[in-house]
Design a protein around this nucleic acid. Sequence first.
DNA 1: TATTGTTATACTCTATAACTATA
DNA 2: TATAGTTATAGAGTATAACAATA
Lengths: 155, 155
Amino acid sequence: MVNIEMHGSSAIENSGIGGQLGFLLRQAQAAVWQDLIATLAPFDLRPAQYAALRIVRASPGCKQQEIGDALGIQRPNMVRLVDDLRARGLLTTVRNPADRRSYALELTAAGTELMARADRAHDGHEARLAACLGDADTVALNGALRQLGRLGGGG
Amino acid sequence: MVNIEMHGSSAIENSGIGGQLGFLLRQAQAAVWQDLIATLAPFDLRPAQYAALRIVRASPGCKQQEIGDALGIQRPNMVRLVDDLRARGLLTTVRNPADRRSYALELTAAGTELMARADRAHDGHEARLAACLGDADTVALNGALRQLGRLGGGG
DNA sequence: TATTGTTATACTCTATAACTATA
DNA sequence: TATAGTTATAGAGTATAACAATA
């Protein structure tokens, strides 16, 4: 991840890109992402792994492809992610008897326990974001980001 | 870059991460980034290259390290970026007589001409963002993103 | 001793094609 | 024929250590 910092760099101010929405968006995302990485690091979880485990917990029995679709991770890249989590005993993948092409993913007891602790840390992450935003209109921010997220997708 | 799309995925809605600020921020940034990549592709410029050229144009004679600092690109990774732009004849790097460790970067005529065309495409990119946001409070959005960008940096 | 640029290198994330087994 | 998972592989982007030249 990029470690974008403005430093009040005159070079970037003069160039005019420092005030652009795309640049600010990238900066903000990078800062939040770094905080999330640091938040999950004590549990040896990266953001994608934590998100995958949350999806499995909320949708037990789901296929790994469903996780990939939800997170925008391509099928080949899901294999390693699920392999690692299974190797660590955080989730199980059992053949779906009804359709033996797919696996049904579920959290193990260890996975559930780890996620309970990771969730508390993640709550702290969200609290930091809220504190950072102060009295900003988070509802409006939410709406604006949802709008931008639909930019190219036609969705 | 990740190709995050929500698809109205029930898996992600159930997991609770679909409505989180960090997730929305990531989605929005990915969509805007993809639009920027597509915008600059006709000029064979990636976002970092375009940003670097804008900084050189605004601060002629600058050192490549100053660009790296402004954009959050580390010194070793600036070498290839500047090399490529110089090989394409878009900028020149001449030894600074006052401090022969550094180079003074400047746009060539070809670089200036290419950037003039790229700027028009980039204006279209910004117009698409504005249109996408509609009547959203862009000033408030700007402020909120600036706040978030200062999350970890103490700045 | 510190700074600028460089080389070599490695790791993560992402992307594509082709394969298997199942349907 | 289409889908779920897999393998191999390639490309970005990013990260650190060590070096040469210069200050």
